[in-house]
Design a protein around this nucleic acid. Structure first.
Lengths: 138, 138
DNA sequence: CTAAAACCTGACATCCACGTCAGGGGCAAG
DNA sequence: CTTGCCCCTGACGTGGATGTCAGGTTTTAG
């Protein structure tokens, strides 16, 4: 398939696909006229790349990991494995942080709801505003 | 405390703190000479802001949410609540996506480990490289 | 008092994953 | 051949959070 179809299938823009190639994350075969052609495998690769981007990995980090996926060998296997494990840890920490943040947001929301309830029932004492940013601890 | 100490305490750069203020996310009192002074409450605020930034919220989004935290009132309460709930959903979706990505990464790692094991035991068949990017489905 | 350290404003620089535009070709249908 | 559509390269624009520098002022330590 050509680049337009790959873009349509994966949801990445044409510009992005060329950018991925430029960064060494994606390959293509060229037609006689120079147009890029891809197989279904490349579509899967793009989906994988997009996941990694969404996980906050940068192009260069992804490029470091790809050798394993691409052409595993004795030389790079250990190094790639190490990097992947490290990225996995980073990702886990990030997820934990986001869960934490969501909890904080929940506390803010709960406080806001309680405040609204107080407004309705008229139980509001002066200066009794919810102090959301001091919600359940860090 | 002055801005340098606040920066040291929160891990944000001095530049960032001034930027937060510029965006209306942080306030300071000024000394006679014009220097910013902060209380412990501001340090907590900064920690809260950094959480929100880490969760992918932009300055403007945070600015939209802060009125609730800051000065809840009848007019903005409903709107802020709505926005917060929306951001909470966005955050949840993002977390789910990251968990998904971590699973994919785990699959890649497992494949790489298996490949390494094959190398050691010599059970490797030709062209038996792990195809990590085709790991357990999307 | 004086020097050093910290702070001020304002402005320009940077990074990164793209968007977008210009100017030009490939390629199938009619 | 022409029309239309998709594609090419190259280059500059963007946005958001932050780095960095210049030139000057305030605060603190000695």
């Amino acid at each position: 398939m050509r680049i337009g179809e790959l873009a349509a299938r994966t949801g990445a823009s044409v510009r992005s696909l060329r950018y991925y190639e430029e960064q060494g994350l994606l390959r293509s075969t060229r037609s006689a006229g120079g147009q890029r052609h891809y197989t279904d495998a490349e579509a899967e690769r793009v989906a994988f790349l997009r996941r990694l981007y969404a996980a906050g990995l940068s192009s260069s980090t992804i490029a470091e990991l790809l050798p394993c996926v691409e052409a595993p060998s004795e030389e790079n296997a250990e190094l790639s494995l190490l990097r992947m494990v490290r990225e996995r840890e980073r990702l886990s920490a990030h997820i934990a942080d986001l869960l934490h943040t969501r909890d904080a947001l929940d506390a803010v929301i709960a406080a806001a709801r309680a405040y609204r309830e107080d407004l309705r029932t008229g139980t509001l004492a002066p200066d009794d505003a919810p102090r959301c940013e001091r919600a359940p601890a860090s």
